[in-house]
């Protein structure tokens, strides 16, 4: 063959990203225990907490029963868990050697990040929606338009969380390290998003008396958590147009538009950040 027969590769970053994403989906489906872990545990929690907390979580004070209140929290937990599991796989990819071939391929790094994030997001959203449909048969009623809107919202949340996971996992060389991060950062982030209990009031209305310093502290910690806005957006969509919806803590947060904007910005910023860190070589590649 002569020199001229060498055709330089014409790279297609979108196609490469899709292939990486498709790989995530195939791997997920071939590892049954991941399917069970990601969706089984949140459902179990939902049922157990729902039944156990129902008396403690006072319907008189909040206007909501816990099983119902916790549906959206569970969806968030499913999305978080699946997103996290999807990004842990970047550590495994590096350890098993798969990643090195991707790193020397002529694709831009954003294409690699997009593949990973898309894969994680699709898995997270699919499972979140599955649970939503299950829950809508048991405890809440929800229309098709709302379901579509939730689908869109979960995609945005999924992109934000998988990208966040990617940023955290990129430099790590062990999954144990990631578990520490998960317990110290990601679980509290979820707990303090309003998923489990509403944002405490600092308005000091007549029924609950003057807010304590603890209330102020929790209120602002939760207000600083980007996931709080995602959580609020999700709840607003679930009870779209219902001014008397059982949404404790609703008055503590900004309008739906602001919540949605924060959620969108979070996803965008996290994705850009993920693309940026992926440009740096991680130490694990050099061993």
């Amino acid at each position: 063959m002569s020199e001229s027969s060498f055709k330089p590769v014409v790279v297609n970053p979108w196609n490469a990203a899709w292939s990486l994403c498709w790989r995530e989906l195939v791997r997920f489906l071939r590892q049954r225990n991941r399917v069970i872990g990601a969706i089984g545990q949140p459902i179990l929690f939902w049922l157990l907490f729902g039944a156990g907390m129902n008396q403690t979580f006072s319907e008189e004070a909040t206007g909501a029963n816990f099983l119902e209140y916790y549906v959206s929290g569970t969806i968030m937990l499913i999305v978080l868990f699946t997103a996290i599991f999807a990004t842990i796989s970047i550590i495994e990819d590096r350890k098993e050697g798969f990643l090195q071939a991707v790193l020397v391929a002529p694709i831009p790094r954003w294409s690699m990040v997009l593949g990973k994030v898309m894969g994680g997001t699709i898995l997270a959203v699919m499972q979140g929606m599955l649970f939503l449909i299950l829950a809508s048969m048991i405890t809440i009623s929800i229309g098709p338009l709302e379901i579509l809107a939730i689908l869109f919202l979960l995609i945005v949340i999924g992109i934000g969380l998988t990208s966040l996971g990617f940023v955290l996992a990129w430099r790590m060389d062990s999954t144990q390290g990631f578990h520490a991060i998960m317990n110290l950062l990601l679980m509290p982030m979820w707990l303090l998003s309003g998923a489990f209990f509403p944002v405490p009031s600092i308005l000091g209305d007549s029924s609950s008396g003057a807010p304590s310093s603890g209330d102020y502290f929790m209120h602002w910690i939760m207000r600083c958590n980007p996931l709080t806005y995602a959580m609020a957006s999700l709840r607003e969509i679930m009870y779209w147009g219902d001014a008397t919806a059982p949404l404790p803590g609703r008055g503590e947060l900004p309008s739906f538009e602001v919540n949605l904007t924060v959620t969108l910005l979070f996803a965008l910023i996290m994705f850009i950040l993920a693309c940026r860190v992926a440009r740096e070589p991680a130490e694990g590649d050099l061993r």
Partner: peptide, 8 residues
Amino acid sequence: LHQAALYG
């Protein structure tokens, strides 16, 4: 096939 996708 995955490798092929990485190379366009």
